[in-house]
Each structure stands twice: as structure tokens, then as C-alpha cells.
């Protein structure tokens, strides 16, 4: 079972929310330094996979396994997963009133890196990443996501990723709602602010972001399963033909378990 060379291995993962089975047996292998994309129509379970990987408690894993560097991720709490190097850029991050971006991120950084950076040391580190992502200086003193525009929230997620330097960054629809300039900045952040051997899993509905973050592998998810896997050209094909041909081909098979 354990893949020595693999970073993340997902096997036959089934996930229920309440009584409804959303993931119906997902298989996925991500190696170090690889960029993967999962595409698919809305409501097929892409975000469920992202949340399940991060360990959201209302998502019940009914069977299958998830391992990271050979360790059982499913046994870990969300914070243990983060400390192991898993990062999820949320599609809809929570607003946390009264907690400033810099204070929160310093606590997170010190926890994950097992360091004790002072406020001043951390501010320098943060400032550099913020400049790269063209985020205004005043941003770090604002309350986490409170009153942020959609674009600011997304950029804030990427800022956190850049600071925490995960081994695997899962980007859940980070592209949605971004204008082209913001999208380019975010993509540049993903391409340049992560360590060489970090891996990225881009979850998206659209092919647009994949023009800037070039995937090594593209997977298509339909009704809770990965039904096709290919290279970058698969994304282009989807852009051209849409998802209907895949829905027709695979759609019915997934419906029996509802």
C-alpha cells in the first residue's frame, strides 16, 4: 500500500455527508513536485475531496485510505494534517472577527515550523510575501477575512500558503471570482512561492487557471469518481467540448447509490 516515492495516495475513498454519499471511490496519486488538476462540473464532489483531505469533521469517510508519505492521514486531526504539510486554500474561508491576519499567521507559522518568531521577525517574512502578491501593507492588520472582497479572500489564502510552505497545496476553486490580473498574481504565487518539491492539487471548474499553473496531470471527476486522467491536453479538450460528453459517458453509473 505504501508508496515510497508518492507524496499523497488516495485509494477508493468514499465520503458521506449526512446520509448522502458524495465520493464514491476516488483514487489519486500525487508525487513530490507534481502539479495535478481535478476538473469537473459543479456538484460532482471536487470540493468534498478537498475538505475530506483537510479533515472536516462533518465529512464521514466510509471506506478507503489516504496516506501522505506513507502515514495514515485519516487518523490525523486537521491540525496534524497541516503540520504534516497539507494545506487547503479554501473556496469560502471563514471570517474570524478580532483576529488580525499577521497575528493569526504568526501563530500558525510558529506552530507548523516549530519556531518562535517574534512579531517583528515575522512581520519581515510576511511583508516580503505580501509584496510579491501585491497585497497592500495595511492588509496584515485587518481582521481575518472580515469584510474582505472575494479577491482579497483568495489572495489571503495564497498568502497563507506562501508563508506556511506546505508539501501539498490543495487549491479549491481559488480561481473563481478572480479577474485576470488577480488570477495571474495568484498563479505566480503558486508557481514561485512554494518550495521546488512541493506538490499542487488545483481543483477547478474552468480551464482558465491551468493556463498559468501548468498541470502535469489532469483528472476529471464526475459524480464522485475520477473518470478520466490525462495530461494538460485533457484540460484543453474540456475547454473545447465541455463536460456533457463525459456526463453522458459516465454519469449514469454513479447514480445507483443515491
Amino acid at each position: 500500500m505504501t508508496e515510497k516515492n508518492g507524496l499523497l495516495t488516495v485509494e477508493n475513498l468514499k465520503v458521506k455527508i449526512g446520509d448522502k454519499e458524495i465520493l464514491k471511490g476516488v483514487d489519486l496519486k500525487i508525487g513530490p513536485g507534481e502539479v495535478h488538476a481535478i476538473m469537473g462540473p459543479n456538484g460532482t464532489g471536487k470540493s468534498t475531496l478537498a475538505y475530506a483531505l483537510a479533515g472536516k469533521s462533518s465529512y464521514e469517510v466510509t471506506s478507503g485510505s489516504v496516506t501522505m508519505e506513507g502515514e495514515n492521514v485519516l487518523e490525523m486531526s486537521p491540525d496534524e494534517r497541516a503540520r504534516k504539510g497539507l494545506f487547503l486554500a479554501f473556496q469560502y474561508p471563514s471570517e474570524v472577527p478580532g483576529v488580525t491576519v499577521d497575528n493569526f499567521l504568526r501563530v500558525a507559522y510558529n506552530t507548523i515550523k516549530k519556531e518562535e518568531l517574534s512579531i517583528w521577525e515575522f512581520r519581515n517574512l510576511l511583508k516580503e510575501k505580501m509584496e510579491f502578491l501585491k497585497i497592500d501593507e495595511s492588509f496584515s492588520g485587518r481582521y481575518l477575512n472580515e469584510g474582505f472582497s472575494g479577491g482579497e479572500k483568495k489572495r489571503n489564502e495564497i498568502l497563507q500558503m506562501a508563508v506556511l510552505q506546505p508539501k501539498l497545496a490543495v487549491l479549491d476553486e481559488t480561481d473563481s471570482g478572480l479577474d485576470i490580473d488577480a488570477l495571474q498574481i495568484v498563479a505566480k504565487g503558486v508557481n514561485e512561492l512554494l518550495p521546488e518539491d512541493s506538490s499542487v492539487l488545483v481543483i477547478t471548474h474552468y480551464q482558465r487557471i491551468l493556463r498559468y499553473i501548468k498541470p502535469d496531470f489532469v483528472h476529471v471527476m464526475i459524480e464522485g469518481r475520477i473518470v478520466e486522467t490525462g495530461g494538460g491536453e485533457l484540460a484543453e479538450k474540456l475547454e473545447e467540448k465541455g463536460y456533457d460528453w463525459l456526463k453522458e459517458k459516465y454519469g449514469e453509473s454513479g447514480k445507483d447509490s443515491d
Binding site: 483537510a54 494534517r81 487547503l88 474570524v96 483576529v99 507548523i112 497563507q160 506556511l164
Partner: peptide, 20 residues
């Protein structure tokens, strides 16, 4: 959950939210 997904333990996350 959001704060825990950034590495904070449950109790650290709760404290941070309460301080906020």
C-alpha cells in the same frame, strides 16, 4: 476548522477566536 487547517490545535484555535 479553518484555524486548525493552518496547524493550530483545537484549543489554540478556540483561544484565538475568543481573544478575537
Amino acid at each position: 476548522f479553518y484555524l486548525m487547517s493552518r496547524g493550530l490545535t483545537k484549543s489554540a484555535a478556540e483561544k484565538l477566536i475568543i481573544n478575537g
